[in-house]
Amino acid sequence: MQRVNMIMAESPGLITICLLGYLLSAECTVFLDHENANKILNRPKRYNSGKLEEFVQGNLERECMEEKCSFEEAREVFENTERTTEFWKQYVDGDQCESNPCLNGGSCKDDINSYECWCPFGFEGKNCELDVTCNIKNGRCEQFCKNSADNKVVCSCTEGYRLAENQKSCEPAVPFPCGRVSVSQTSKLTRAETVFPDVDYVNSTEAETILDNITQSTQSFNDFTRVVGGEDAKPGQFPWQVVLNGKVDAFCGGSIVNEKWIVTAAHCVETGVKITVVAGEHNIEETEHTEQKRNVIRIIPHHNYNAAINKYNHDIALLELDEPLVLNSYVTPICIADKEYTNIFLKFGSGYVSGWGRVFHKGRSALVLQYLRVPLVDRATCLRSTKFTIYNNMFCAGFHEGGRDSCQGDSGGPHVTEVEGTSFLTGIISWGEECAMKGKYGIYTKVSRYVNWIKEKTKLT
């Protein structure tokens, strides 16, 4: 034993070699072989497995989906700052455009905790909710729209109204504003409101030439003092309507412009014939205590009207009353817009006519005020429907199939267009061939041609 100890002390290297040989010859039971080890760690190889990531292109799944990435790591994937920024906006807080917040056709661009709407022409605001041009839906104005110097929408209202708090709607500024039905039992019968379409306001006024200088022999019209197929109006439903009495009662109609003036057809009036105007009328054979009678003290036909040349060209006249009318729910003026808007309103496509005229061709006159909704007829169809001249200051309205029309005794009465609950004068009943005849239409004086003249002559002093 002493000898062994001496050998170990003198030859430590020998001992180490012996131990190493023993270990190498022993069977290893701690580690699995290569094949079995792979069965336990069965993990798919990654895209760049075996390579240094710093030297390969980034992978979106590896960089940002398996674990949260930084902007720089995302930049490695896209290799483009702009594309990385677009991805980053949604990656950080989701897609803010998912709810489609942009209105009126706006395009949404996502941002971090926010979004941006790219608005089409005519709109602005956070969600493109603000109209900035009158060309689109009248700028959301209830009545009139004008573009300011910086191309912003400025709404306005006709006389007797003021802008509401929203700067879009119009509200009454006087007790009985024009064009409004205020009798409670008839307010439910107000005709369907007309909503502004998209309009090209630059070209809204037709490029028409008034044929002022045409000389033409007097034409022989049949029954051209021209509501057939209409309905009984309720008291106060058309408070701007008046009836004219002269040699015979209810020979023509008219509309209240203001307390002192009536507008009617020029062919209705004769110099030297006494005319009485009755406002607030409903049943011409009954006294309903809503009527107001006034005498006409002055007749002003349009300066281009000449019955000797043509009885229905420039067929418009103004009547001055001896005493002002007292405005109330049964006696209310009709609204008159400017030339541009009167023309736009007419193009809405349908209007209402009213009167006490004959209820059928050569038949009896109506006792109760009649009204009828009539569609506008395109000019080409209008011209083809008659052998008589249709001037540019006239328009056609009615039904091709016949059966409904204005008729004798309705002449001078109103053709009105309702705009968001307020009625505007767009025409004056003038003439036609018979009444409600198939293929024939009622012919009306186009008020847009005469609004400046009306307003100039009827100013209240």
Results as ranks from 00 to 15, higher is better:
9 A>N: 11
11 S>Q: 06
14 L>I: 12
25 S>A: 09
25 S>C: 14
25 S>K: 07
25 S>V: 15
40 I>A: 15
42 N>M: 09
42 N>Q: 12
43 R>K: 12
44 P>N: 10
45 K>R: 11
47 Y>C: 04
62 R>S: 13
65 M>K: 09
71 F>I: 14
76 E>Q: 11
82 E>D: 15
86 E>Q: 15
91 Y>V: 14
99 S>T: 11
101 P>V: 04
102 C>Q: 01
104 N>V: 00
106 G>C: 01
109 K>A: 08
111 D>C: 04
117 C>R: 00
123 F>C: 00
128 C>H: 00
129 E>S: 02
130 L>G: 08
130 L>R: 15
131 D>F: 12
134 C>L: 03
135 N>W: 06
138 N>C: 02
144 F>L: 04
151 N>H: 12
152 K>S: 13
162 R>F: 09
167 Q>I: 05
176 F>C: 04
181 V>Y: 07
192 A>G: 11
198 D>A: 15
198 D>P: 14
202 V>E: 10
207 A>M: 13
209 T>L: 13
210 I>E: 13
217 S>G: 05
223 D>N: 10
228 V>Y: 08
231 E>T: 13
231 E>R: 13
232 D>W: 10
243 V>F: 10
244 L>Y: 03
246 G>D: 06
247 K>T: 12
248 V>S: 11
251 F>Q: 08
252 C>R: 00
253 G>N: 02
254 G>L: 00
256 I>A: 02
268 C>P: 00
269 V>A: 10
277 V>E: 00
279 A>P: 00
280 G>S: 02
281 E>I: 14
282 H>F: 08
286 E>C: 06
296 V>G: 02
298 R>K: 13
302 H>E: 02
305 Y>L: 02
309 I>M: 12
309 I>T: 07
311 K>C: 03
321 L>R: 00
326 V>E: 10
331 V>M: 01
333 P>L: 00
336 I>H: 00
343 N>D: 15
351 G>H: 04
354 S>H: 05
356 W>I: 09
357 G>L: 06
359 V>Q: 14
363 G>V: 06
363 G>P: 11
363 G>F: 07
369 L>F: 13
372 L>P: 03
379 R>W: 08
383 L>M: 07
385 S>F: 15
386 T>Q: 10
395 F>Y: 03
400 H>W: 09
416 V>F: 12
417 T>P: 00
425 L>T: 00
437 M>R: 10
438 K>V: 08
438 K>S: 15
440 K>Q: 14
442 G>T: 14
445 T>H: 05
448 S>W: 02
450 Y>H: 03
455 K>Q: 08
459 K>Q: 15
459 K>A: 07
460 L>V: 04
